[in-house]
Structure formats: structure tokens, C-alpha cells
Computed example of a mutant assay.
Amino acid sequence: MSAAARQRLSDMQPAQQAGILCNDPIFQRFAAVRSGLPGHQFNASAAGEYLRGVCQITSRTTLNTSKPAQAQFAALRTEFDAWSGRIAQQR
């Protein structure tokens, strides 16, 4: 796939972003750690359950229409990006 054909994650709908994140092994590990299970690895389904719980939704598609859920998802993405070293953590 060419660089021009690839869509940036931040340009996608929130529900699509959430689906991609839940399939990311690093996010799955993050979700396990945040769930109090350090040393464990969630699968995509468990990561999705974690995400829905944090965002207080029953379906990821709700992320496309609910402003409160979008705010929770944005905060979760920021926490994940900091945890994974993708952005600098605040001191």
C-alpha cells in the first residue's frame, strides 16, 4: 500500500480508531495493565471490553456520535500514547 493510500489513524472515525487499537498487541498489554493484570496480555475482545468500559459505552460505534464518549476515548488514547512512549509523559 502506498503512503498516499494509507489513512492516518487520527483522520479515521473514532469507532474505526478504536477497532484498530483493540487489535494492537501493545494496546492489549496496556489494557491488561490498566485492568490490574500486569504481566498479562489481553486479546482483541478483552481490549474492546476494557475500552467500552472506560468510555462508558456498549458499542464502539457510539464513539462516532457521543461527545462524552469521544472525550473519554481521546483521553484514553493520550494515556496509551504516553504509556507506550509515543508521546512524552508529563512530569
Score class of each variant (00 low, 15 high):
M1D: 01
S2Y: 15
S2N: 11
A3I: 11
R6W: 08
R6F: 07
Q7P: 02
Q7I: 12
R8L: 13
R8D: 01
L9R: 04
L9M: 13
S10K: 12
S10A: 07
D11P: 01
D11K: 12
D11G: 00
D11W: 15
M12N: 00
M12V: 05
Q13P: 01
P14D: 09
P14V: 02
A15C: 06
Q16D: 04
Q17K: 03
A18E: 02
G19Y: 15
G19N: 09
G19V: 08
I20S: 04
C22Q: 09
N23M: 13
D24G: 00
P25C: 03
P25W: 12
I26W: 13
F27G: 00
F27T: 02
F30L: 03
A31N: 06
A31P: 02
A31L: 08
A32I: 15
V33W: 09
R34P: 14
R34L: 03
R34C: 08
R34K: 14
G36H: 08
G36A: 01
G36Q: 10
G36N: 10
L37K: 06
L37G: 06
Q41R: 03
Q41C: 10
F42D: 02
N43W: 07
S45F: 11
G48H: 12
G48Y: 15
E49M: 00
L51G: 00
R52T: 00
R52V: 02
G53L: 01
C55I: 04
C55Q: 06
Q56D: 08
Q56H: 10
Q56A: 05
S59K: 13
R60A: 03
R60P: 01
T61A: 02
T61P: 04
T61M: 10
T62K: 04
L63T: 09
L63W: 10
L63I: 05
N64C: 01
T65V: 14
S66H: 06
K67H: 11
K67P: 09
K67N: 11
P68L: 03
A69L: 11
Q70A: 04
A71F: 10
Q72S: 05
A75H: 15
L76V: 00
T78M: 04
T78Y: 15
T78I: 10
E79Q: 13
E79D: 12
E79V: 01
E79S: 01
F80E: 11
F80N: 02
D81T: 07
A82K: 06
W83K: 04
S84K: 01
S84Q: 05
G85P: 07
G85C: 00
G85Y: 12
R86A: 02
I87H: 07
Q90I: 09
R91Y: 11
